[in-house]
Amino acid sequence: MASSFEPSLSLSSSRQGFSGHGAQSLADTLPNINFGFDDLRDRMAKFTAKFDAFIEQGRKRVLEERNQFRMGVAELQEDRRMKKKAVEILQLKTNTHQQTIAKEEAETREMQASIASLTEQRDRQLAQRDALKRQIAETQREIDARLAAQRAHAQQREAQARFNVPELDFWIANLCLRIEGAGQEDRLRFIYTHVDERNWEREAWFELSTASRDYGVRHCRPKLEKEKVDRVLERVNETRELSVLLKGMRELFVEAMKS
């Protein structure tokens, strides 16, 4: 460190110089002034140290704040990058979801169209099936009716065949009788003539039922008393002889015509 200036030493040496020459200078007459350079130097040194410490602390604080700022900026940039990446992923998922929805909607429309087509086809087939069922039912009814007619005709012929014997021919000829079908498979109509003395052409008839083992008279013209007819049928069912029926019914008709 440079030596400090000391005015007291300078003044004393000046005085000695002047006194050596034997003459008194003007400076010798000035008062002795002590400026306190040592104290000032100490205080300046302390101030400098404090200032340097303040500057150092400020520099450290600025560095720390700058480092924190850089770290914050880096974190923000990383967060922004992550958010941008998340947004891109969400956008990709959204696009994929929209494509999936569009595909599913297209498939749904196709399925609905297929269902509508199948439903229409099913309705047509059901209508055709119902029409075929009706045709089959009508055909079956016609077949049943024809079979029934054939059976009735066969049974009628069979029933007539039971009476188609020489004895029946004898009674037909002698009782002025003819036999016809009565419109039902189990009935025969016996028609008499020459039962009315006033009109030999007048007819009298009765319908014989062969549906069961015992014969039964269902209708007759003219009307006969039921009790008398039942007595004739009772004898017929006991004897199983058709001649009893034919003669008995003719007698009842003749009696009815006379009354």
Results as ranks from 00 to 15, higher is better:
T48L: 04
H153R: 15
D42A: 13
V217W: 04
H219E: 14
S114Y: 07
L26Y: 04
A116H: 03
A159V: 02
E65W: 01
M111P: 03
D52A: 11
E158I: 04
K93D: 12
S259C: 05
D28R: 08
F51H: 08
N95Q: 09
D123N: 15
A145N: 14
W200A: 09
T29W: 02
H21T: 08
K60G: 07
T29S: 07
K133F: 00
Q160A: 13
F170A: 04
L233W: 06
E185K: 14
L147V: 12
S212E: 13
G248V: 03
I191M: 00
C176E: 07
S19M: 05
A106H: 06
D38F: 09
D39Y: 05
N67G: 04
D79F: 01
A116L: 10
K258H: 13
M1D: 08
Q68R: 09
E78Y: 02
E6V: 11
R235H: 10
A137R: 13
P166S: 12
K223P: 09
V232R: 00
E201A: 11
E227V: 13
A127H: 06
L76P: 01
V165W: 05
S212K: 08
D38L: 11
T100V: 07
G183Q: 06
E241C: 05
V195D: 01
E75K: 01
I33K: 08
R141Y: 03
H194R: 08
R151L: 14
R129S: 11
S12K: 10
R213A: 14
L90N: 08
A145V: 10
R109Q: 15
R187L: 01
E64A: 14
R189W: 02
H97P: 00
R41E: 14
Q125W: 05
Q140V: 09
W171K: 04
D230V: 11
I136G: 03
T48W: 02
E104V: 14
G17R: 09
S259M: 10
L11F: 04
E201F: 11
P166W: 13
L224H: 05
R218L: 12
R218M: 10
G36N: 14
D186F: 05
E203H: 07
R157C: 00
H21N: 09
I143R: 13
F170L: 08
N32M: 03
A45H: 08
A45Y: 07
E110C: 07
I101H: 02
S10L: 14
A204K: 04
Q24W: 01
T108W: 05
Q99P: 01
L30F: 01
I115C: 11
I143N: 10
T119W: 03
W205K: 09
L76R: 04
F51M: 03
M44R: 03
R187F: 01
F69H: 07
T48C: 00
A127W: 00
Q156H: 08
I179L: 15
Q125M: 15
Q91T: 12
Q121V: 00
K228H: 14
A149N: 12
W205V: 04
T29G: 02
E75G: 01
E142G: 10
E238M: 08
Q68H: 00
R221Q: 13
K93T: 12
